[in-house]
Amino acid sequence: MSQVLTLWNKTTALPQGKRIFSLLFSQKAPYFATIHPRFQEIRPNYAELVIPKRRAVHNHIKTVHAIALCNGLEAAMGALAEVTIPADKRWIPKGMDISYTAKATSDITCIAETDPEQWTSDNPDLPVRVKGVRDDGEVVIEGVIKLWVTPKAPKK
């Protein structure tokens, strides 16, 4: 079991466990802390978090800034990748293709999804489907984060 999934399982068994996990996850890649992610669900092939709409992530029209949205999508993708990737492989992001489809006028739920067979393929290109959804169900951002998945180098 991955370290991230182990941490998720241990912390979510505690009171305020999702909050504790979110804080700890944000320490792994400190830039994630700028959006104050609140992880809601993590399992193989799926991760979901919420970006709270607050002044620190606003743009000039007082909606959640596009780059804050991308940061949330990348955090969800990273959690998904860590809990899904086979133990003999490694991953790194290599691109993002995103469309902004509506104003982000509320908290935004960021979702990352893959299919199980993507992780067992010999193709190193692995597209992760991502989207951000407003409280009213409207998708405000969607696209793909492209991963490069390769076998781990043998240990010497």
Rank of each mutant, 00 (worst) to 15 (best):
Q40E: 15
W8M: 02
I35R: 09
F32Y: 15
P44T: 08
A33T: 06
T34E: 13
L7W: 03
G17Y: 05
L49D: 06
K10Y: 09
S22D: 00
P15T: 02
N9E: 07
Q40W: 04
L49P: 03
L23D: 07
L24M: 10
W8S: 02
W8T: 04
L14D: 08
R38C: 10
P15I: 01
Y31D: 10
Y31M: 14
E48D: 10
I35L: 10
S22N: 00
P30Q: 08
E48V: 11
K10T: 12
A47T: 01
H36G: 12
N45P: 05
Y31C: 11
A29W: 12
L14G: 10
L5N: 05
F21K: 04
F32T: 11
L5K: 07
E48I: 07
I42Y: 01
P37C: 09
I20F: 03
T34Q: 15
L5P: 01
A33H: 10
Q27I: 13
N45D: 13
K53W: 11
N45Q: 12
P52R: 06
T34L: 15
Y31W: 14
L23P: 01
F39Y: 12
Q40D: 12
N45M: 08
P30F: 06
I42K: 02
A47M: 02
E48Y: 09
R43T: 08
Q16D: 14
H36F: 15
S22R: 00
G17R: 03
F32A: 11
L5T: 02
R19C: 02
